[in-house]
Simulated scan of single mutants.
Amino acid sequence: MTITIEDPSPGIRVLTIDRPGKRNALDVDTYRQLAVAIESVDQDPSVRAVVITGRGAMFTADTELVDFRDGPGFQNAVTLLRALVNSDTPIIAAVEGIVVGVGVTMLLHCDFAFAGRSTVFSLPFVELGPTAEGGAGLLSQVAASEKAAEMLLLGDKFGAGRAERAGLLSRVVEDGHALHAAIETAEELRELSAESVTITKRLVRRGRGEVLEAIDFSPGPRRHR
């Protein structure tokens, strides 16, 4: 298993990307496991909030492209991102270290996201050959369009402060404290009315149809020409 599933306290589920030897890059099976874990939560009323994080001092170094260039594996990534968008359970990201490509895209589809102060982000889609995948183009809806273009077209690295200003993060915390902040938020959500949280999330995400269209439009990784 490349995903570790834990319930640190009642109602809180933590999904940890557990491939530290690969810098937590997401391969076909990891995408599948994450999607299944998220989809199963909505069928379990005892789980009130989900936290997604990465093993060690990093979130994810993006997709493991070798698994996708010559096969249909990108559909697994689409399935995961659709699961994030469709979930009625609050989803909270806790990121540290590096967050690359689809790892950044995932933050757009989470309800909350916390990052350690020295976390570094990048969206190198154009540089690597693929277009902005998984609805990453929706970054222009949370950041000024010129800033989104700079992040997506140039793929330059940027820090947690800029990610927060761009609307990717709920809050920047001290290094090593992102998971703690995420679990605290999950515990706050647990104490609220489950029905009210679900309805409110649906209202906040009422444009999810457009988001799903953007995810489905993504052609996925391809080779340089």
Rank of each mutant, 00 (worst) to 15 (best):
G97N: 00
A181M: 04
G159E: 07
S87K: 03
M151P: 11
R190S: 14
E164D: 12
G137C: 12
G137V: 13
L108N: 03
P90L: 00
Q75M: 03
G11I: 07
L189H: 03
L15P: 05
T16I: 08
D111Y: 11
V173E: 15
P130I: 12
E188G: 12
E188F: 14
S170Q: 02
L26I: 06
T198I: 09
S122P: 02
K22H: 13
F125S: 10
E210L: 08
E127Y: 11
T4C: 13
G167V: 05
L65F: 10
H180W: 13
I183E: 06
E64W: 14
H177I: 04
I3V: 14
G73P: 08
L179K: 03
V120M: 11
T4G: 15
V51T: 06
L65N: 04
D29T: 02
I17Q: 12
V197P: 02
P130F: 14
T198F: 07
S170R: 06
E6A: 14
A178R: 04
G207W: 11
D27E: 06
G134W: 10
A178W: 07
P72M: 00
C110P: 05
A37G: 09
A214V: 01
Q75K: 09
T185W: 14
V120G: 01
A115H: 10
A57T: 04
Q141W: 10
F74K: 10
Q33R: 05
E96F: 00
F217D: 07
V172G: 05
D44H: 12
G11S: 05
Q141P: 02
V95P: 07
G101R: 00
I3A: 01
V172H: 03
G135S: 03
L139S: 04
H224F: 14
T63K: 11
A37N: 12
V100N: 09
V99G: 06
R32M: 04
A166R: 14
H109C: 00
A57N: 14
G209K: 10
D88I: 08
D156A: 10
T2A: 15
V78W: 09
S140K: 13
I183G: 07
S170E: 01
T30S: 08
A181V: 02
A182G: 04
F74H: 14
D44G: 05
N24P: 02
G56N: 03
A160I: 14
D216L: 07
V211Y: 02
G161F: 13
A143T: 01
E39M: 11
D70K: 10
A57E: 08
E174A: 04
L153S: 12
A194D: 07
V28N: 12
A25I: 00
K157Q: 15
P20T: 05
V173A: 13
I91M: 13
K147Q: 13
I12F: 03
